[in-house]
Amino acid sequence: MGCPDAELSVTLTGDRGIRILNREYLGRDKTTNVISFAMQEGEFGAVNPDVLGDVIICVDTAAREAEEADESFFGRVAFLLLHGILHITGYDHERSGEAEAARMEEAEARIFGILKEEGLV
């Protein structure tokens, strides 16, 4: 990802916690599987370039998604962490159109594939 010495905060929460964060910070009053907050954006983004940001993963939603997809809980959480890190490092599948969404999906597949090959997920 080009930031080997960077810091990242990872929080695991439940449906209630992620819904509160989603409502308060993103204006969406519902649960979601992962939210990320980039610290290198905005007016003070350059204050500490070694701090990437925060990734908040909802373990309740991750567990439901893992069960529905017949995959491991750990694998689902690892994928959501990767998804959040990609958002923090500049990937966007929601606001930047289909080409950027495809670029993010390719990066997810490539990196997650490497993690699987290495036996890490």
Rank of each mutant, 00 (worst) to 15 (best):
35 I>D: 06
37 F>L: 05
38 A>G: 12
39 M>H: 13
39 M>G: 15
41 E>A: 09
42 G>T: 01
42 G>M: 03
43 E>H: 12
44 F>E: 05
45 G>D: 05
45 G>K: 02
47 V>F: 14
48 N>D: 01
48 N>L: 02
49 P>D: 05
49 P>V: 08
50 D>F: 02
52 L>M: 12
52 L>N: 06
53 G>T: 02
54 D>F: 13
54 D>T: 12
54 D>C: 14
54 D>Y: 12
55 V>I: 11
58 C>P: 03
58 C>H: 09
60 D>K: 06
60 D>G: 13
61 T>A: 13
61 T>S: 15
64 R>T: 13
64 R>V: 08
65 E>Q: 14
65 E>L: 14
66 A>F: 04
68 E>L: 05
68 E>S: 12
68 E>Q: 11
69 A>C: 06
69 A>T: 07
70 D>L: 14
70 D>T: 15
71 E>R: 13
72 S>V: 02
72 S>R: 11
73 F>M: 13
74 F>S: 13
74 F>D: 15
75 G>P: 02
76 R>A: 15
77 V>P: 15
79 F>D: 10
80 L>E: 07
81 L>H: 05
83 H>T: 05
84 G>V: 02
84 G>S: 11
87 H>A: 08
89 T>P: 12
90 G>T: 02
91 Y>R: 11
92 D>L: 00
92 D>R: 00
93 H>N: 02
95 R>L: 10
96 S>P: 01
97 G>D: 04
99 A>I: 00
